[in-house]
């Protein structure tokens, strides 16, 4: 088990370094920041000065090490647009993203998985077919289109819920949160539902196919032959086995949530890091883009690591791997 964790940790480290290299070189080498920052009035000399100012005259690896060194000390550079340290900017926006992603996750899991297991067990029932049809429609509808429909229905026609902004925030542990007030919760509702719909559909489909695959394993029939009651078989044999693929997928989907939050946050003007990324891309605010991508990468690497460890915890066959 310890060896397995160490091995995963080692893989994660490599992955983190490679990803940061790709992001760094992709943004600083393939694209030319000087071209992007300069406009038509810049003279050649201005451009050279700018390059020196940005440290672009130094060899590539030196630039990377300078950047990586700064990063390790929490220095991700300064935003061109906001003229503030990037890390500060990101940390300020992070809670907003965390709270809607988490809410969407909770909604997605608590509705999607039970629906999936139900429709897996009662595969041929009418209810299962209806559920499956709706989830197919759900995940066939692009996220942004769902958002538009939600806004039109709940904000424009019914006028039940606000369609943009974060509303009132309250402080907890020194961080501003929206979910602590009713107004904040109302503002959270639409973006969170927008993110959750896709989650629900995905989880339903995965849980359904997982359930069906496990139902047809021989140990399920053997459990019945042992005289175990149906409920207990579902509770114990089915759930324990189905947990494995679900945990894996859920972990990976956290990444998907963060990714899709860029779309949702942009449409609902939710002041999270996703909106920050998109705004920065549009305004060519490179330090923010680089920092965002590197931080997100580290986060994915960490999530993957946690998933692998949980996987081993749930599946004894991997736990005992030599």
């Amino acid at each position: 088990m310890i060896r397995y964790i160490l091995k995963r940790l080692w893989h994660s480290g490599i992955l983190a370094i490679v990803m940061s290299l790709i992001v760094f070189f992709g943004l600083y080498v393939v694209g030319d920041p000087v071209e992007m920052l300069s406009d038509d009035e810049f003279t050649e000399q201005d451009k050279i000065d700018l390059a020196i100012e940005l440290g672009l005259d130094k060899p590539l690896f030196e630039q990377y090490f300078t950047y990586a060194g700064g990063m390790l000390q929490g220095d991700f550079g300064t935003s061109f647009v906001h003229n503030r340290p990037v890390l500060e900017l990101i940390l300020e926006r992070l809670p907003a993203t965390i709270e809607i992603s988490l809410l969407a996750m909770i909604i997605g899991l608590s509705i999607g998985i039970p629906l999936g297991i139900f429709s897996g067990i009662k595969n041929n029932s009418r209810a299962s077919k209806i559920i499956s049809f709706f989830t197919t429609v759900g995940y066939s509808t692009p996220n942004f289109w769902q958002a538009i429909i939600l806004i039109m229905v709940f904000a424009v026609f019914l006028q039940w819920l606000p369609a943009s902004g974060r509303g009132l925030t309250n402080s907890m542990f020194g961080i501003e949160w929206a979910w602590l007030s009713l107004n904040g919760l109302q503002h959270m509702a639409l973006p969170a539902i927008n993110l959750a719909i896709y989650k629900i559909c995905m989880q339903q489909r995965l849980a359904k196919s997982g359930t069906q695959e496990i139902l047809y394993q021989e140990y399920m029939t053997f459990a019945r032959a042992k005289g175990i009651s149906r409920n207990r078989i579902i509770r114990r044999h089915l759930l324990r086995n189905i947990l494995i693929p679900i945990v894996t997928i859920t972990g990976l989907e956290v990444g998907g949530l963060i990714a899709f939050s860029t779309v949702t946050e942009t449409i609902f003007s939710w002041p999270g890091i996703g909106k920050l990324l998109l705004d920065s891309i549009h305004m060519i605010d490179r330090p923010v883009v680089v920092a965002y991508l590197i931080l997100i990468t580290m986060m994915f690497v960490f999530i993957n690591f946690v998933v692998d460890v949980m996987y081993a915890f749930l599946d004894p066959r991997i736990r005992h791997q030599k």
């Binding site: 992955l15 990803m19 992001v23 992709g26 990976l252 990444g255 998907g256 963060i258 990714a259 899709f260 860029t262 779309v263 990324l277 998109l278 891309i281 883009v289 991508l293 997100i296 990468t297 994915f300 690497v301 993957n304």
Partner: peptide, 10 residues
């Protein structure tokens, strides 16, 4: 290990 939409954005 990286969501497609983010990669595309990048």
């Amino acid at each position: 290990s990286f969501p497609g939409i983010l990669l595309a954005l990048m």
